[in-house]
Design a binder for these strands. Structure first.
Lengths: 197, 197
DNA sequence: TGTAATCGAAACGGAACGTCTGGTATGGTA
DNA sequence: TACCATACCAGACGTTCCGTTTCGATTACA
């Protein structure tokens, strides 16, 4: 809902079915046509809606796509495996699932390109994308500290960028299939890198 | 030269000054207008050249931009600092300089988006981008092994993706200013992560 | 009951695409 | 030296999508 334009208070209310149809059509087109091939006209046609109804809600294609794709605010906590490496491994696996999801993987590069000249929006993407991850990462570190497995002064931001950056580099840039071992190896490298500082 | 279309053998040869003018105008426009705002017509006008001369050499905007921006094949070796961490730190600093260069930073997201549906080209970007880095990384590890500082079985690809991914995540997505400490911290984390496996 | 914002549909001018046709210039080949 | 294939610039072309605007009809809140 972040990028939607506000509705007026008087007059005929917006039809929620129209809203849903637009978002649904956007996701569908993203997945089987790609970000570049997606057009506002195409979304309108697929949703059985006038262009007007779209421009009334979103200021453009990037804003529409962002809301359509990155709305799932899943905050499932990381289960306690008993070890820091185990917890981080699961966290990385979640990260892979998230970035490798069809809609997200296809949309992200295009969004970054379209928001290239808007640092504020890029920053917002990063926040929205990593807010949940960061919260869970902090919790995982707290558990490790409680176990005495970890000294204080954990560089959370660096670790966040390392984990997310590495995974994103695979999925977004290389597009290579993520091997099942990657999360474990990556987690092991980062965790041992932190613990023996 | 990778994405250029081949020249014919007979007839008038292509003018190398035209070629240079096109590439130069492309870089200039990328830097002060952005990837999205760059158009073939604009490049032609700025270069004092006909559209025809551009389409004769490149099949489209992405190919042109790629060649214009990622042609510098600098392979300066990493100086031997005497420690693995020192060497990797310098390597990361080079990486930051490369990705934070105005033209590269502005062009990369757009290129990835335009090549989204062409895995082969995306892979090629990764190779071209990291080929030099990989070679230098391997050399740095060899030196460390000769010093007895490192055991065998170094996961080079994982390290490459971690270093490049983290840096790219800062510059490309976050767009945050890279602090001078980042290369040292990142190098320290990764290196200790490897050494104590 | 009236008012204001919604709805789908369609037309609008603008911008950029990639192709193509002129007319001219240039250099290797015969 | 004459030829000819190609490169050069300029501009016109049809297409696509953009984002805005108009239209008449619809819908709820005041």
């Amino acid at each position: 809902m972040v990028y939607s334009m506000p509705a007026r208070t008087h007059g005929r209310p917006r039809d929620s079915r129209t809203h849903a149809a637009i978002l649904s059509a956007t996701v569908a087109l993203i997945v089987d046509a790609g970000y570049g091939a997606l057009t506002i006209v195409g979304v309108a046609a697929r949703a059985g809606v006038g262009k007007d109804a779209i421009y009334r809600r979103w200021s453009g294609k990037p804003e529409l796509v962002y809301e359509a794709v990155f709305t799932s605010a899943d905050a499932d906590p990381i289960p306690d495996t008993g070890t820091l490496i185990g917890d981080v491994t699961i966290l990385v696996e979640r990260l892979v699932d998230e970035f490798a999801a069809p809609a997200a993987a296809v949309a992200l590069p295009g969004l970054l390109a379209d928001f290239a000249d808007q640092p504020a929006l890029r920053m917002r993407i990063r926040e929205d994308l990593l807010a949940g991850v960061k919260a869970r990462l902090v919790e995982v570190f707290d558990r490790a500290a409680a176990r005495g497995e970890l000294v204080a002064d954990v560089p959370v931001e660096l670790i966040l960028d390392s984990l997310a950056g590495t995974v994103l580099f695979h999925v977004g840039l290389v597009g290579a299939p993520v091997t099942p071992e990657l999360p474990r190896h990556l987690a092991a490298m980062v965790v041992t890198g932190i613990k023996t500082r």
